[in-house]
Design a protein around this nucleic acid. Sequence first.
DNA 1: GTAATAGTGTCTTTCAGACACTATCCT
DNA 2: AGGATAGTGTCTGAAAGACACTATTAC
Lengths: 225, 225
Amino acid sequence: MTTESIPAVICTVDVVLLTLEQSTLKVALVRREREPFAQALALPGGYIHAQDDVDAQASAARVLRDKAGLESPYLEQLATFTGAVRDPRGWSVAVAYCALVPATVLAQAAGRVELVAVDELPPLPFDHRQIIDAAVLRVRSKSQYSSLPVHLCAEPFTLPQLQAVYETVLGEPVNKVSFRRKVDELAMLEPVPGALQTGGAHRPAQLYRVRPAYRRQLSLSARGL
Amino acid sequence: MTTESIPAVICTVDVVLLTLEQSTLKVALVRREREPFAQALALPGGYIHAQDDVDAQASAARVLRDKAGLESPYLEQLATFTGAVRDPRGWSVAVAYCALVPATVLAQAAGRVELVAVDELPPLPFDHRQIIDAAVLRVRSKSQYSSLPVHLCAEPFTLPQLQAVYETVLGEPVNKVSFRRKVDELAMLEPVPGALQTGGAHRPAQLYRVRPAYRRQLSLSARGL
DNA sequence: GTAATAGTGTCTTTCAGACACTATCCT
DNA sequence: AGGATAGTGTCTGAAAGACACTATTAC
């Protein structure tokens, strides 16, 4: 009943790579090499390679590898941004993914990406501003009830460190007792037989790591999809 | 650096249209007219029409109109299913949407769609089973903290009716007092000056409708994206 | 009156936050 | 000893569920 010639739609992936640096949530941006918007700062992204990628998640992982030189254990589909006007090249579909890594991991990408505080974004090409805003909203939302922020902490870490990460992401103080109760009942962390002492003039804190059994299911967090 | 000839990717939308019939959550399926899987029961879906649709949400609304002959006030992007093997025609991107309508509205589509209980799905083509499962999971999850199930109730409705809808969707009994407290503090409903009497041999229940001010923001529910 | 469901008042239990206290390091 | 942060015990207040009671209809 309809035509068999389907006008081509541009299929891409974009990755919102987030990290915590200086107690600030930052997104990794790259300089675009090609038109449109060549030289502009934008989300790392690229075409889906039907011949190479098994699915769009693989495309996102490849983009992350090529543009930032890193792997992200946490890589989750965020949403898909579509339409006739978001890309000057034509009607496009951009499947957006969200990645979270500790700052230490992002150090590997030094020089290849630029870290920008998500609350101080410059004007960005396409609808990348919206995509980032959606990612930040999602991360903040999920952090209220899940263990998602542990992906922003390099292991091993102390509970006060993890609490500080939660407080930065949520943008508000977290009750210490409640926080520890939650961590305890989730039974997701295990103490490492060794204490942190560095800072010095005070009692050292216990170091923790994620229980191996929980490492897998961390991506698919508690509620919903 | 890479090739400029991008192998075509098949771009489609699929709609998971859910309703409540006989106290059961059901999904609307249609018989496929064309290959692949012609004659098979599947989700209503179709190609994105770059020349007609402003974005994929518009494609989904068009599919709903063409295949089921109805408009759904609630139409939300669910997730995107991609890959080389999910469609025998080749590498594909399917942006999935979730729609919720009262059974009375779906009556308009009688004969065009077949309602199937989501807990008794037959084998389905593509990855439509996964898509439906994701939609049901999402609806159940959101129903725990949002007013999403009101989209399954034809207005005006009574509170006992709405509570029954919640109980069916969640699959567990809901505390009456708590339920009414929540409804009250959300201040989302307003009583209609007229009571229901039908059933008869008992006290009639107050009829309610959604407050006009809340009608808009019902789609974008409380938490997250 | 009786049966049946709508709607409400109130007690109990559960959970999150506040606060204060102890513990352990460094200087 | 004193300062600083880690870690814990306990009280309090808010919110959710359990239960029972009243309200209003048809017969």
